[in-house]
Design a protein around this nucleic acid. Structure first.
Length: 903
RNA sequence: GGACGCUUAGCUCAGUUGGUUAGAGCGACUCGUUUACACCGAGUAGGCCGGGGGUUCGAAUCCCUCAGCGUCCACCA
């Protein structure tokens, strides 16, 4: 072990961190230990699309904090790491990379097998990078239980749930309108579609000159697919046409247009008549559904016009070209009434940004509004066999507080999203992902011998993880080529990571589910959190996690989103070598609040780097003061010759310990860290350490306080605390040291406590003495007078001042005025005017005013405390607090009264 | 259009079912380098808590209203 005076003056994180981490990893402490209460966090799996960003770093810092805290509370803490295959995101990434290398159409050119191999290789590389970064952050996760959303076990879970849902009628195949991304040739869920504001032209026109109704649209090219014109039922202008059918010729194509009345139409907008295009607009599809209108698709998967369904000359055109051509046609034919420039919200793909088309397609859907028979007793509300919908389960999970969202206001957002939730399209036309476990019967039936009559019984479709064999004929089954939405597998994450559906593994880990908390950014509340609740309540009948902690997004100094194109990205791997992991972690945890975006700057991280260095130097100093051979390893006890300063620091230490513990439990990490920093820097380093330089015999206390500080800081800054722990020679390692439990039986803590007050007054005196020195010729006696009135007698004052100043080498006033209280103070003297030098009349007036205020305050409190209704519903601690405040105010009132009388 | 959030010191933000004199970090300014630390210490200045109204003995905090900024959802065809 190095001697502390040989330690470098500044903490050098880069020489420390890797060694500390690998020592932890080797010792096996990341695995759940002992027999405490299960405490499990399943890590939100980062996408295997490359590298981690600060959002991930935030997630890791907070989760590691919670895990370490609970591990030290001797819970069976288990943090399961993993990565997400991220289906479309990863595939897109690889396609782009391959295109850069000159392969224009990677999927066509390579074929499914070769292309998938490329994606899998890339995903593996990403995984290795990510794991490295996660370790760099100091994350104490159990690497031996690492999972992947696309590994074999997770695939089993996916197939199992798919089958269950299919059997329950919750998954069905249907020909419906879906979001289609023409760029990547796949469907998208509603959540993967964003809107972009663009300038558009709104045309007001007739289909042809004989058609009686004028309509408006920004998408004239889709009008080939119109099958109706809808008007409001009460609109007098169009009443005579409702129910009639027309056959106008629109740009060379004959349409069949019914006029229908529907409440969804706003009579005030445009002409009050809406051309209904069921195949290319969700709203129109709904209207069409109500009136049983046919659906005519005019745009194909390639985002070009379908030749058979449009007028001559329009087939094969791109949407843009067709739009221009329709407009030109209408104008030429004199059908165009007006053209107006409008702002339009264009749906675009979240990834890639291409405009999304709404097309009717045969796809797989999860039905969220369909009642089904529950397989388990669910959420304590439903019995096995009861009927409910998935939506109802999702709502009840949060309404009943079985899952708590922090901060609470996101409840509303969550409920609102669920209420508007439509069936979830889960099939994707991409290759990378869980292939849909559905098999289709080949068209040609070649009957097996003797089963000729049964051929009619051949099943068209079988849901199965493995290739089925037809009982009646020799036709082969072919698996659906589509894959599942990536969120389908992530929805199962909490329990699939714990081994479900494997019976043995699941039974072994059953106690860890529901997991303790899900910590993630609020931006994926819908994508993921809601779907995990859906899956877990459906499959297991219980919530996936007890709490949800949502952190804010990390933005740059100007509040902009960090993005590569803006060049304002702070890469965790850049700042970690510069300032150390501990500093980066602190800057992501302190000065932030849940659900609120945070701005991060280099200066902020630098500030916390300074703090880690402060802690380092505190330790260095303490270790020079301590002769470890003298320190007995038995339990720390307050020395018999303890001074007031000693008692004060120890009382504060317990107080801070208690507060920090409570705050972490309440997810108030920032506040906990701030209080701890204030104590460490202001109380311990700047004040107590200074006294310890002069007063001897403090080594035990110094050693004890340092130990406690290291423990309390450990979840926030694991590396420096662990390293110092070792240097200081404390028993074991910081990571496994039990969290201190503060005895509060005989020692009431809190700011109202008399003892604490006394010590604090004492500290104020010290501070004032320092000020006195600084302002030696200014005589700021009045301020000192205020401090002295807090003490009971002159004897007390003398005693206290002596105690204090013994520890001070400061110089004080040269001459002591008559009548002042004086005390020896090391090399000099310190003096106070007990009466103060204030104007007595002014002072009396001031006191009377103060008295009035206090009396007022007191009567308000008493009024409230005598209010029976308030007393009934008010929580105990509030009442206690108010009572204490009342007593305190009473005391103050009495003391002021006395002083007023004297004057 | 609906919902949510933000507005507090020059900057970044705390402020716990209303409580006495509104806090911290950074920055600014003054002073200080003698043995833990200049990645330091001791101090100082700086606030009509976005505007207006209300409830209350008492409001940054609760209610109403207006304004600016931001986010999400839905979308008008």
């Amino acid at each position: 072990m190095k001697k502390s005076n040989e330690l470098p003056k500044a903490y050098e994180p880069s020489t420390v961190e890797d060694g500390v981490y690998s020592a932890w990893e080797k010792s096996g402490v990341f695995k759940p230990q002992g027999k405490g209460a299960p405490y499990c966090i399943v890590m939100p799996p980062p996408n295997r699309t490359g590298t981690l960003h600060l959002g991930h770093a935030t997630m890791l810092a907070i989760e590691d904090l919670m895990i370490r805290f609970h591990r030290m509370q001797v819970d069976r803490a288990w943090w399961i790491p993993g990565t997400d295959h991220a289906a479309i995101a990863t595939q897109v990434k690889v396609e782009k990379e391959l295109q850069k290398k000159g392969i224009k159409n990677p999927r066509q050119e390579l074929g499914r097998e070769k292309f998938l191999k490329k994606v899998v290789d890339f995903a593996q590389e990403s995984r290795d990078t990510i794991v490295n970064q996660v370790k760099k952050m100091g994350s104490s996760c159990d690497w031996e239980s690492e999972k992947y959303t696309l590994d074999e076990e997770r695939n089993k879970a996916v197939n199992e749930v798919f089958t269950m849902m299919y059997e329950d009628g919750l998954i069905e195949r249907g020909y419906r309108l879906v979001n289609w991304d023409p760029q990547f040739q796949t469907t998208l869920s509603d959540d993967e579609v964003e809107t972009k504001e663009v300038k558009a032209k709104m045309l007001t026109f007739r289909y042809d000159k004989d058609f009686p109704i004028v309509i408006s649209t920004t998408r004239p090219e889709t009008k080939f697919g119109d099958t109706a014109v809808a008007v409001h039922p009460k609109d007098k202008r169009y009443k005579k046409y409702v129910g009639k059918t027309f056959t106008p010729t629109f740009c060379g194509k004959t349409l069949t247009i019914q006029v229908v009345a529907d409440d969804a139409v706003d009579p005030e907008f445009g002409t009050g008549a809406l051309g209904v295009t069921p195949a290319h607009s969700m709203i129109d599809e709904e209207i069409a559904g109500r009136h049983h209108l046919p659906m005519v698709q005019v745009i194909g998967k390639d985002a070009r016009m379908i030749a058979d369904e449009v007028g001559e000359g329009f087939g094969g055109l791109t949407i843009e070209d067709a739009r221009k051509k329709v407009e030109a046609y209408l104008e030429k034919a004199g059908l165009l009434q007006s053209v107006e420039d409008v702002d339009q919200n264009l749906p675009v793909a979240q990834r890639g940004g291409a405009p999304v088309e709404q097309l009717p397609m045969k796809q797989w859907f999860v039905r969220v509004n369909k009642p089904f028979k529950l397989r388990n007793a669910t959420l304590g509300k439903w019995k096995k066999g009861d009927k409910a919908t998935l939506k109802e389960l999702m709502i009840h999970a949060v309404k009943s507080k079985q899952t708590n969202i922090v901060p609470e206001r996101f409840d509303k957002t969550y409920f609102h999203w669920i209420e508007n939730l439509r069936d979830w399209c889960i099939s994707r036309q991409i290759w990378f992902g869980h292939q849909i476990p559905v098999w289709y019967h080949a068209n040609v039936c070649i009957p097996k011998k003797g089963r000729e009559k049964d051929v009619a019984k051949c099943l068209d479709l079988i849901v199965s993880a493995t290739k089925p064999i037809c009982a009646f004929c020799n036709a082969e089954y072919e698996q659906d080529s589509d894959t599942l939405d990536t969120w389908f597998s992530s929805g199962l994450w909490t329990f699939s990571a714990l081994g479900w559906p494997d019976k043995k593994k699941w039974e072994k880990n059953r106690a860890f589910h529901p997991t303790a908390v899900l910590e993630t950014g609020y931006d994926i509340l819908f994508f993921w959190v809601a779907r995990m609740i859906l899956m877990s309540t459906y499959v297991l009948g219980e919530v996936p996690f007890k709490d949800v902690y949502l952190h804010g997004l990390v933005r740059d100094e100007e509040g902009k989103k960090m993005s590569k194109s803006l060049g304002n990205v702070i890469d965790p791997l850049d700042v970690i070598p510069k300032y150390g992991t501990d500093a980066v972690r602190l800057s992501l945890v302190i000065g932030t609040s849940p659900g609120q975006d945070m701005k991060l700057s280099d200066d902020k991280i630098k500030g916390f780097r300074n703090f880690t260095n402060k802690l380092w130097n505190i330790s260095r100093f303490v270790l020079t003061q301590v002769d470890k051979t003298e320190i007995i390893k038995s339990k720390f006890q307050i020395p018999k010759n303890a001074t007031l300063a000693d008692e004060w620091i120890l009382v504060r230490l317990d107080e801070v310990t208690k507060h920090v513990t409570e705050k972490i439990q309440k997810y108030e990490f920032s506040s906990a860290g701030e209080e701890l920093r204030d104590f460490t820097w202001n109380d311990f380093a700047d004040w107590y350490l200074e006294i310890a330089k002069i007063e001897s015999g403090k080594s035990e206390i110094l050693y004890h306080v340092l130990q406690r500080i290291l423990i309390l800081w450990h979840p926030f800054m694991p590396f420096v605390t662990e390293y110092v722990w070792g240097l200081a020679g404390y028993e074991g390692s910081a990571i496994t040291t039990p969290w201190p439990v503060v005895e509060t039986k005989n020692q009431k803590l809190g700011t109202g406590n008399k003892e604490v007050k006394r010590f604090e007054t004492l500290r104020d005196v010290v501070v004032t003495i320092r000020r006195l020195r600084a302002d030696m010729n200014v005589e700021p006696i009045q301020k000192v007078e205020v401090v002295i009135t807090g003490m009971k007698s002159l004897e007390d004052q003398k005693d206290m001042i002596q105690t204090l100043t013994r520890s001070s080498s400061l110089q004080f006033m040269k001459e002591i005025p008559e009548g002042w209280v004086s005390a020896s103070a090391g090399k000099g003297m310190v003096a106070f005017n007990p009466e103060g030098t204030v104007d007595l009349k002014k002072e009396k007036a001031r006191l009377e005013k103060e008295l009035k205020e206090v009396e007022n305050y007191l009567s308000g409190l008493e009024k409230k405390l005598s209010n029976t209704e308030f007393m009934k519903k008010a929580p105990k601690n509030i009442v206690e607090d108010m009572t204490a405040k009342r007593d305190e105010a009473k005391e103050k009132r009495d003391s002021i009264r006395v002083r007023v009388e004297v004057l």
